[in-house]
Design a protein around this nucleic acid. Structure first.
Lengths: 207, 207
DNA sequence: AAAAAACTTGACCGATTGGTCAAAGCGCCC
DNA sequence: GGGCGCTTTGACCAATCGGTCAAGTTTTTT
């Protein structure tokens, strides 16, 4: 409240706020909110600490704004799941979208994972509202497919849980996956995962 | 180095060290190493901060000792996977052991999850050594079952990844699971998960 | 029961933390 | 090019951090 926010949005504001978000994503994903420091974020963004505070109310504000700005992107793959398509193809496409997000946005995945593990005091409302509604809606679609006999009987909610778990695992537990697979399979990791998940979904859902 | 460790192990030492471990498990699982404070741990254990330091070298020592003491328990379910049993029954039993661990040891699950997500600088050696060996050994068993045509062809490593991911998901993402399922299904959550995973494993592996 | 050993803690310390503030720099429009 | 508002920062602050220490209390040993 005490600090007057700049009124109009200038070019510099867009650039610097974006740089801070990028830096904060790195730092928060690796250490969580409490484990991250403003100095780390400022250093990574190439700014001084007071300068960071000039653009955001404080450390927690960076965290919550970052989280909220990512939530939409994060649940978007599920939004695209269409009741009109061929059921198994739809679920396979959803699985691939989620796996691609693990490959291309591992920091975001880790950020959410850390937040949820630590009881998400900051995104609880979003989980309980929009996310739950969306999942309920799409679960109903899957339940419809089951009723029509177009896929094998399956609990839609646990199906989603397992898809989330398996795809996000490759981002969140990247270190473990890399260690167990060894350097030889570093290149093909996500291709192998894609093939495995494709086969799993088909076997699970084919009537 | 400076502080002389007590020589023999007394009753009080066992009790207090155990109390500190329990408290530390709570705190570390929720905040990670950097996010946890000695004051929090001491308060939860019902001790003064200097008293905690009396029993451990420092915060990091509590963390690493805790982690190491849990590692054995954590990978034990996989160790029990026997090449002599009926393949699908063996993998189902393994899945159930892992799911039971999520139900009964959620804090431990979250502690490991946080550690791995944050690049596990402290358990890397264990991952690269003993864990990798164990997984390689058991993956060979599964590969053997595939070769003999006793289960459907799968990549053993990705099979393990998916089982880890799905079972641990119920502990690590408990808040999300609970929110999506709603209070009505709170009681049956783990029974439903068990039924779902049983069906998934059977459909995935049955020839 | 007395001495030794083990245990406990209030007071304290230097380092780091999130955040403030006044003053100096900079860019952009007239 | 001069002025005004946006931007930047060095110096600083109170709070909290991990950890120390000397002095006391309790438990165990003899």
């Amino acid at each position: 409240m005490s600090r007057p926010r700049p009124s109009g949005t200038t070019r510099i504001q867009r650039e610097k706020r974006s740089a801070i978000f990028q830096a904060a994503l790195d730092i928060f994903a690796e250490n969580g909110l409490r484990g991250a420091t403003l100095d780390q974020i400022a250093a990574r963004a190439g700014l001084s600490k007071p300068n960071v505070i000039y653009y955001f109310e404080g450390k927690e504000a960076i965290y919550t704004e970052l989280l909220e700005s990512l939530l939409d992107v994060w649940v978007d793959p599920l939004r695209q799941l269409s009741a009109d398509g061929e059921p198994i193809e739809e679920i396979l496409a959803y699985t691939r979208r989620k796996l691609a997000m693990s490959r291309d946005m591992p920091r975001e995945s880790r950020l959410f994972a850390t937040e949820i593990i630590q009881n998400a005091p900051r995104v609880r409302a979003v989980l309980e509202g929009p996310l739950k509604s969306l999942v309920d809606e799409k679960a109903a679609v899957v339940a419809g497919w089951v009723r029509e006999g177009r896929i094998a009987p399956v609990d839609p909610y646990h199906l989603f849980f397992s898809l989330w778990a398996m795809t996000q695992h490759y981002a969140d537990f990247d270190l473990q996956v890399g260690t167990v697979l060894g350097p030889a399979r570093d290149q093909t990791r996500y291709d192998d995962a894609d093939a495995y998940l494709t086969s799993l979904v088909e076997r699970l859902l084919r009537v």
